[in-house]
Design a binder for these strands. Structure first.
Lengths: 189, 189, 189, 189
DNA sequence: CATGAATGAGCATTCATTCAT
DNA sequence: GATGAATGAATGCTCATTCAT
């Protein structure tokens, strides 16, 4: 039962933090949404901030590690396509986490706290993998290409997770893949 | 004097709202940064929320209208390039406004308030112009192309405005223009 | 078993109440120190206050009655010496009870509750016995002498029970007896 | 005005802390008694604990330094009498401070905080001065005599400050002086 | 009996807002 | 206008107490 309660608190917090922001979310709201008492929250987490950290530590970890696959032996083009696929699917499956992550990234206070946390490491891993792929594909500006792809993903998060009904995410994904394939299609084979 | 005070309050608020979030910013901090007394803030604005609305109404307006130029008679390719140029420059020149705008967009509470506000109209205008451009350029999925370009801009905001030292914005802009030109270069002439 | 548990709760409570104060002690701390669950405490006592009352009623009683001996036929000087002896030994043997008692006496809220409780009766008994002793010894201000002796005991409690390592309690006791004997030695025989 | 408010908060806090204990006193009560709002308290003091520290630092200092007079050239007997006089008067004039001081001394948590604070230094100064006086008077156990006198004062605090109507403080003082004079009267001249 | 998860009133503290000066 | 002292509703958090297991 204890595990269930904890999950309920984390799930409610995630949704509220992602949709209204961490500061604007009260512990009362979290309690109401999780259908537990305010007091119970604090028998699971010492502070409101600890709830946020638990989400970041436990959930971000689980999710992001799915996308990053070291030692992928496939040709670069396939890896690029599969990468886009995985990232967009991640956003589709965990829109709240993606939205919260983007939100936190926009917050100076949070960024300072996270200076040496895993999030940054993932980003670096992401970028270096991308750079390798674009290099293999023959890009002469692989870093810029990586940046642009990363921006694209953040832009998808910024829009799709907030109003999914406005954006045909699968069509967008396929179109994006088409664009990339048409751009790099002749190379890398 | 009165005008100066008002501007100082708006500028300080913009910076704090953009960097730490609206909820996490206190009127005390705004007063300190603007070097005015807390009381004076409330002789200029009735509520903290009014400060935010003033920023949105006055600043967003001024900025965004620069980008949207109706009745642009130039060929589509030129318009596309000029559009990318104008948008990236806007982000470079007003990173705080861009950052705040993105942040507000991620906030359900704010989005509800803005349902019928200008921001949405601008977005629609932006998208329909883009669609026209991509149509003229021969795209068979002009809406998806527009979405993707918009995502790109949001992604630039999400990253560049938060850590400008990490991203060579002008190189990125040129590379982006190169990509677009190489993709649509032969068409639309 | 039940008796053991009850004693453990009372002993832990006594120590915590005496050392940190009643209000500052949480039931959680009591449970931890007594190595029982929080719930069990409330199957033995209805409220936290009841624990305090149990200590006062049961322990104070037991202890104090040792000191007060009605119908003591010995000469006044002996009774005085034996009284000092008994009181100091009581403090030495039950420093926590003495400390708690002093603490409660300093608390208006508690004093109000105790208006008609036994504690006050003991005090009166103590004082009237002392007065009798000092009268017999020839004091012309037996009440003031009683007060002063009582103050002395409270002062010993205030200091010795809190930092026993700083005060050579037996030396102090003997010195005190010496002083009293030298003061009243020639009289009362 | 700001000073007045601060004094009102300190005075109300002192009374409540002294009479009901620090932990049992709520900031709401302090505010009510000081006739200010709860919020105002926290514009003067960061935490409730800081109020206590302000009382200790500012008031204890002022008061205690009156009693301790270094370089007192008078004969020991006079110094002893004057010392008793000053201490009892201090208790009479600032019973709340004396009561609070005794209460804090009974609290392990507070004692730990104060390990290296001035209070302890005063106590040491007090004891060493007393020891010197009793030595000069010919005592062969000057330290024990000092302890006993100190205990007496604490006992007066423990009783008089809590129920002044029960104890004729001036009579007690004079009687105490009489006792001391009669004990040490022939010596030290 | 025994546990500790759960509750909610209560507490210290914050902060947008007001207002006397 | 301008200040900052003052207010009090709201927030994060605590803790005595209850109760399902």
């Amino acid at each position: 039962m204890r595990g269930r309660t904890r999950e309920a608190i984390l799930a409610s917090s995630l949704e509220l933090f992602a949709k209204r922001g961490y500061s604007a979310t009260t512990t009362e709201e979290i309690a109401r949404k999780a259908k537990v008492s305010k007091g119970l929250i604090f028998s699971h987490f010492d502070t409101k901030q600890d709830i946020l950290f638990a989400i970041v530590d436990e959930q971000f970890d689980r999710i992001i590690s799915n996308v990053l696959k070291e030692n992928d032996a496939r040709p670069a083009k396939e890896r690029l396509v599969s990468f886009v696929d995985a990232t967009v699917d991640l956003i589709k499956n965990d829109p709240l986490l993606a939205r919260l992550s983007l939100q936190l990234n926009l917050d100076d206070g949070y960024r300072k706290l996270m200076k040496n946390k895993k999030t940054k490491q993932y980003l670096d891993a992401f970028l270096s993998q991308m750079k390798a792929v674009f290099s293999e594909l023959g890009s002469n500006k692989p870093e810029l290409d990586s940046f642009i792809l990363m921006f694209l993903f953040d832009g998808i998060v910024a829009n799709y997770t907030v109003a999914p009904e406005l954006f045909p995410i699968d069509d967008i994904k396929h179109h994006l893949v088409d664009i990339l394939v048409s751009r790099w299609g002749t190379s890398g084979d």
